[in-house]
Design a protein around this nucleic acid. Structure first.
Lengths: 330, 330
DNA sequence: TTGTAGGCGTTATCAG
DNA sequence: CTGATAACGCCTACAA
């Protein structure tokens, strides 16, 4: 591999001058600049990022933590982040936390050793204090997930509104017996609390009481959805509609419902979350809440790079639009 | 961030001794080793990978090129690669080529600058000669895609057999008018040639002639599948079954078929490829060819690390099993 | 068994 | 405008 010295030698100039050209510093005569540029081309020279990192320069690499890449929501998010980053000349290092604290910390450690300039976190596993302690080593940005007391930029959606819109839609369709299925818990705090609030708000407004038996927590996969449906079938008093925290769970419910001889939406109306590709594949097509994944990725990179270039940037939060997509399952 | 010098100072020893401990070299007395270990712990010391890279050491980072991460086949593949790598203490840098030669080369350049020890390519865009020229800078391994004249390890599947099994299954079901849908071309060479061969072989064995009108090339998405179905409907002489290069295209075909009032499989039998999650979501469930993605990822990492640790390793190819999963769409 | 010194490729500082 | 030099953190001949 050609080094800066090779370029210097070939062009008959010093490393310093070559470096100036590489980094677009002023005070280089056009002639010499030309000379250097030619030599660089001739040797196929690429600056060595390791050396730059060692010198304390930026790495032009951004880390992204996702719980699991096979979740379409996250693979689309990573996709848009990667594309936006590529356009800006940045690389993306991906890490899956698998909802494991250790893996998350291991990834955050990349900041310490200047392997990445910053990390975009799309989910949070450890306590915020723990994570915040890494801010000293590099930039951290939250995209999708968030915390209240944070001192980092956040790109987020109004999850409360998303759930509210969905449940209100069900109510408008005449449903009063509405079940709820979340990937988190049904607590005041903790995962999924915003959506919980939206759900409660919509019911409250319509004067409908929550039936605790119709609350399903910690549901994630298609398989989970199938199980939920089986549980519902066994109930004496069944819901007529169900709001779900993911298209996949909604899909599982729908598949199982059909298998059990129920008709969607007349026997059971179903609403998903994310507007993943399967929403249009399911039959009937799934009514769902769309999250603007592409926007989230672009914005995250935009803000991250701003932060990197201007470390004193004022911390801001960005809220992106979330909308209801009505299809046939409601 | 603490450096090796800090550890040396704190432990009252030299950098050399500390380095020896870090790298498990012999000739360090137990006492001093203890001393160093304590100092390391106290300072929360982590070796700086950039410095190591600069010194020409391994980076414990492996690059993976995929065409697009949102394709479930690749996101599952990346997932299994990442998991296997993590277990071995390696990091994974992901790049999307978007089937673009430039992007692919940009990623291969990471080898030149020792940013990654090796690269796993799951697809190939540039001419092989071009790619092979990067072998000088680091290890390259092919997983999924392959070339004939290659001098790198390949983890691959018998695509010919996959297509053959699928088409044969259709024939056994009594179909004689069989359409074919590929993501590549219908050439002797080029993308998808193996599956083409399997398709042809199965028909040939059954004495069935190929109808060129029923060959659809360069089809990738659900939307593509829908278009294919529309084209089929317009035909005077329609096929009764279709073999498809991806579950997504198959899904599009199925959705559109139902929309047009056709019944699957009685009006049209459909067979997919990959056994992605949507195969079970579609109604009727999709008969498809399963590719053992997890195995592919694990094996790729296993072989890559072997290669890294023993550069003189004999080049081997590995063929993994591929199987037909019969469901309801045929 | 331990330590000294030099260099990997880059850029900032300082002197011309 | 240009160039010599030191330093980033690590590893390894070589010396002791």
């Amino acid at each position: 591999m050609a080094t800066i010295s090779d370029v210097a030698k070939l062009s008959g100039l010093s490393k310093t001058t070559v470096s100036r050209v590489i980094n677009n510093h002023p005070y280089v005569s056009d002639k010499k600049r030309e000379l250097v540029l030619n030599a660089m081309k001739e040797l196929g020279y690429t600056p060595n990022p390791s050396a730059r990192r060692l010198r304390g320069q930026l790495t032009t690499t951004i880390g992204v933590i996702v719980p699991r890449i096979v979740n379409p929501f996250f693979s689309y998010l990573v996709n848009s982040i990667e594309q936006a980053a590529y356009k800006m000349g940045y690389q993306v290092l991906i890490g899956q936390s698998y909802e494991d604290k250790e893996k998350e910390l291991a990834f955050l450690n990349l900041l310490k050793t200047k392997q990445v300039d910053g990390i975009i976190m799309t989910s949070i596993e450890n306590d915020w204090d723990m994570i915040e302690s890494y801010k000293e080593y590099g930039s951290i940005l939250l995209c999708n997930d968030y915390v209240n007391q944070s001192e980092v930029p956040m790109i987020r959606l109004d999850q409360t509104k998303g759930a509210y819109l969905g449940v209100k839609h069900l109510i408008e369709k005449g449903h009063k017996k509405i079940a709820y299925c979340t990937g988190g818990l049904f607590d005041e705090q903790g995962k999924g609390k915003d959506r919980n609030q939206g759900f409660q708000k919509a019911l409250h407004e319509a004067g409908i009481k929550i039936n605790p038996k119709w609350i399903f927590v910690d549901q994630h996969t298609i398989e989970d959805g199938k199980q939920v449906m089986k549980q519902i079938l066994e109930m004496e008093d069944r819901p007529t509609a169900i709001f779900t925290g993911s298209d996949e769970v909604a899909g599982g419910i729908m598949i199982q419902a059909k298998e059990l001889g129920l008709t969607v939406p007349s026997d059971l109306a179903i609403i998903g979350f994310d507007d993943q590709p399967i929403a249009e594949i399911l039959d009937p097509k799934l009514t769902t809440i769309r999250q603007p994944v592409d926007l989230m990725g672009e914005k995250s990179i935009e803000v991250m790079i701003e932060m990197l270039e201007n470390p004193k940037l004022e911390i801001q939060n960005y809220e992106l639009p979330i909308e209801l997509i009505v299809r046939q399952s409601t």
